[in-house]
Design a protein around this nucleic acid. Sequence first.
RNA 1: GUGGGUGUAGCUCAAGUGGUUAGAGCACUAGGUUGUGGUCCUAGGGGUUGCGGGUUCGAGUCCCGUCAUCCACCCCA
Length: 447
Amino acid sequence: MKFQNVKGTRDFYPEEMVRRNWLMGMWRKISRRHGFAEYDGPTFEYLELYTAKSGDGIVSELFNFEDRGGRQLALRPEMTPTLARMVAARANALPKPIKWFAVPNFFRAERPQRGRLREFLQWNVDIIGAAGEAETLADAECILVAVDFLRSAGFSPEQVEIRISSRALLAELLNCLGVENERHPATYTLLDKKEKQPDEVWQEELRRSGITPDQQQHLTQLAGARGAEAHRVIQNTLKTSTSPDGAAYAQLQQLFVYLRALGVADYCVFDLGVVRGLAYYTGVVFEAYSKGTLQRAICGGGRYANLLSAMGGGALSGVGFGMGDVIVLDQLAEMNLLPDSALSFDCYVAVEEQVDTVHLLKLVSLLRMKLGLACNYSYKSTSLKKQVAEAASQQVKYLLIMGTQLQLKNMQSGQQQLVAEHLDWSTAAAETELLSRLKQMLGNSPD
RNA sequence: GUGGGUGUAGCUCAAGUGGUUAGAGCACUAGGUUGUGGUCCUAGGGGUUGCGGGUUCGAGUCCCGUCAUCCACCCCA
């Protein structure tokens, strides 16, 4: 019987693990420097937690099972329900705003394809409980974190952009056009599809949507309007109403003022075509869009004003985004931005023929446990040349050569120094002497 | 769930229209170059050609099924 990994899952051999750890490290570093605290929850929850948010239809999309007590459980397909549950449990005790992030693995029973697997990692960043004016600050900070990551990973504004819009603004505009509230969700879906299908198909769907020809014409102008053009279209639309609201429009303009102040405006573009598929977004919506050969969203997020209360979490508004590792790594690879994934250790001890293995082990143990260095040596007695070659293949910074003398070689500079003329393991004092000598030489060597 | 492409060594690929014992490079292992940078030389291990059936004197090659994988659709938290 030959086994293989389950469809849609990945094995992480050391080389891939280096990349994965690099990405997770970036996510954590970026999150922390913007003042976010890491949290996590269980890998599985009660099935109802997910059906409560997304309806029974979600069940076919997730891995669910029954435990021995007959309870219906499911592997987590996303973090928001868990987050809502955790926040709800301590809603009154947690200081606001709550700025949390997580880098969990998720499971979805979907058909795998490029950029989508059945188990994947996703960076989740949320700010919950910022109210009033502070909402826009939180929106800006969320987008800032996303841009900071993309820029730090090496994406240029030519390679990726953050497309930003607002559901609240769209609602305002639809009201001006006289589209009834109950038609808003369907209209959002329509707008969302504008760029994803041929124009004739979209126009056909528009005709069948049940809104008036006049409304259809305005909607065509709105959909996909970007930057200055979007502002012009909005101003024209607001004029068509006798009592325009304009609050959401003002808020969105304020958001862009903040983004300019934060220095990330070059990555951001106002784009009315961004809607996001999720029903629960109520305010700002945004996505990072890759402009590579495979054009697609790298991350997506937005403001959800009612989600937590709908899940028993109290009247707290939140804003957040998620970024999956599969697409990010895919896009980084395409743009040649992935770091070197070779193994690397701190040092390697090579021995000449006459060296006693017991002495070798004593030195290795000093390096590993007293100096805390990641250190390797060969189990076999092979030529010095092969040991040096192996050291080089492990990308070590230092090579220690043990013979009658002990020498230290800096593998980057090629410089070699004498550590000790003779190695004396007979007394504890001699060992301490050697240790401090090594500490000094390794500590002072330039990396 | 629908449609399409692809399955030969760990990886990248060979093997005229069916024809002897399925090959190469890289990687891996061992030995050598008596030793300080991924070298070079030699040797070796590794394959039921995804699996099952069929056609045939004979199938990696043709046919059917199945599984896996990739791509697109659906969906996208």
